[in-house]
Structures are given as C-alpha cells and as structure tokens.
Amino acid sequence: MFTYILLDSICKLRGERTVSNIYHLLTAKKSTQTIQDSYIYQLTNYFGIYKRLERKTFQKELRHLYDQGWIEVYQDKQVVLTTEGRSVLNGFDHSQIYLNGMKYDNHALFTMQVIQLLVQTCTHIQQHHDTFIPVVDDESVQQKVKEIFYYYQKDTNTILYHLYQELTRLFEQAPEPLGHLFTDQLTTPRHIGSSKIQLAREYGQTVHDMHCQLMNLSHFLCFAIEKDSSVSFLKEIVPHERNMNLPLTGSAQKTYKLWQKGHGLEMIASQRNLKISTIQDHMVEIAYVVKNFDYSPFLSDHQLQWIANQIDRLQTNKLKEIKESLDDHISYFQIKLVLAMSHQQKEGVF
C-alpha cells in the first residue's frame, strides 16, 4: 500500500514538484506550501498519514522504486512515473482505500486509540484487574476514555456490548483484512495486542505497508462512524466535529482569527511582526478551506473571471505560466487565491 501511495503521489504531481514535496505531504510538515500543493494536486487524502516517516527511509523507498524502473528522476529532483510505473500503479486495487488525511488527520488516530483503550479498560475492570498499564500513552485519549467510562457509570457490560454490536456491523461492510487487523490489536487481561511490527510479519508485509494499512483502518472507522446512522454509541463517544479545527497551519489560524475581527493584511502583518507576503500566504491557505471566502478586498469580479479563464485554458498549475499569460499588474497572490477558490468549487471541500 505504501508503494501505491508513493506512485500515486508521483503520478498526481505530474513532475511539477520535487520529491521533498511528497515527503512533506506524508509527514504533514504543515507549511502553507505543502497545504496548497496538496489541494492543487488532489493529494489531500495522503496529508499527514505517515508523520513518523524518516527522511532516510523515504529516500530508500524512492530508490527502490527507481531501481525497479518505475520512476525517473530529473536533475532538479522532480520525479515522474515511467510507463512501467504507470502500469504498476494501475494494477493496484485502490477501491479499499479510505484515507482522507486532510479531513480526519489527528482525529483518526485519536478514534482508534480511544476504542483500544476503552476495550482494555472495560475488560480489565470487568474482570477485576484494577491495575494495568494503559496501552495508549496519550493524555487526551486517557482523559476521553475516563469521561466515557464515568458517563456510562462504569457499566462495563453495556459499553462492551455496544462496542461489539457496532464494531461488528461496521467491519462486516469493510474489506476483509480490516476486521482482523482491528481485533489483533486489542488488549484484554488475557491477551496483549499485537504491535505494528508483529502484524507486518504476520501478514507478510513491510512495516511501512502495515503502517498505511493501519492508517487506512482508522480512517475507515472515522468514515464509517460518520456515515452509518445506526452506530449511535460510537458516534457519541468519538464524534467528528466538522470544522471545529480548520486544517490550517497554526500561524494561519492566528491570522484567520484577526482577519475575522476585521483587521486588514497590513495591520495583521505589523501586529504579528511578520512579512506581508507571509500573511498573504495565510490568506491563500484560508481560501482553500473557508466556505464563501470573501475575496473582494483582493480581487475584483472582473479579475477573478479573467484569471479563472486563463487557468482553465492553460490546464496547468504552474504559477509562472499562468502569470505570463496575464497582465503585469496581476500578482502571484491573486493567482494563488483564484486557484484556491476554484479548487473549492470543483471539490466542494467539506
């Protein structure tokens, strides 16, 4: 699956970006550039799905693709698929991929871990094992599980019964390995769950493939919980609150707050002691995710139409090409804004 994701990313970037961009995408090094690129090239699904990936490992995998003759690398580190690579990519069955990185991001891991820790907690308490080392270290997950546990008045039978009913329902609709993978990871007093590395060996996959499989599993869970109206227990304990946090960099988040208060770009720049171009980049990020983005301070309707037409005609995402086809007084900032907004129209983001 990891190979598929790499090949698919390379394919979608069409040689217009470097390999580093893919690395930043997978590890969600949240820079404005990474976020913009992932929208432009329709790679939002893979955003942040492998945050612990080391650069060394990433390069080794690319090297492997290269040795197989599936990719070609140009001097300036741009990559494209070879004909062979393309046919390998087309050979993959991608109907079972549920990844949606930009949407679920940290929520997916959170959901998965809450369920795992809830199972561990309830089965232990039920069988009178009051002390145990939690398999999840994350404080926010532990907090959440505590809340659920007390909300259901420590009624472990009820919690476990609901979990069983609803998880079975969801995994019956899922592709075969997901139910297995899910149960193999669970920890109860009689059995400690399998680690990622152990699962990889059991399923005869690389650790990277297994990582992606497990991410896919957690994204499937989020997706299924959101979609299936009958899993009310899971919906209640791990709800996905839309737009609670817009997928913005922290810095863009701050800019957005000031902007909402009615501050202008220059003012925000001086308040935050940042360059105006940085604030403009934040606005572009915002234009990708905020519905009905108010572009009027930056663009006239006429300019918007004109830029949009040129993008349509040229069928490219290369800023320089677009800029050259327009008048000098149209700025890169304006072009990026239009790219962002036209992306929203196409995708109907969120």
């Binding site: 039920q126 476990l160 019964y161």
Partner: peptide, 24 residues
C-alpha cells in the same frame, strides 16, 4: 496461548463478551 478463533467476528466476541455471560 488461547485457542484463537477462526474469524475476526468470533475473536471479537471472545474478547469483548467473554465475561458477560457469567455476570448476567
């Protein structure tokens, strides 16, 4: 090592519901 159930569904039942019968 316990007997491992053949399907994930049986295994899930074994893990989550194993004590419930005794307690009802």
């Amino acid at each position: 090592q316990e007997e491992t159930a053949s399907t994930w569904k049986n295994k899930l039942a074994q893990l989550l519901l194993q004590e419930t019968e005794y307690e009802i």
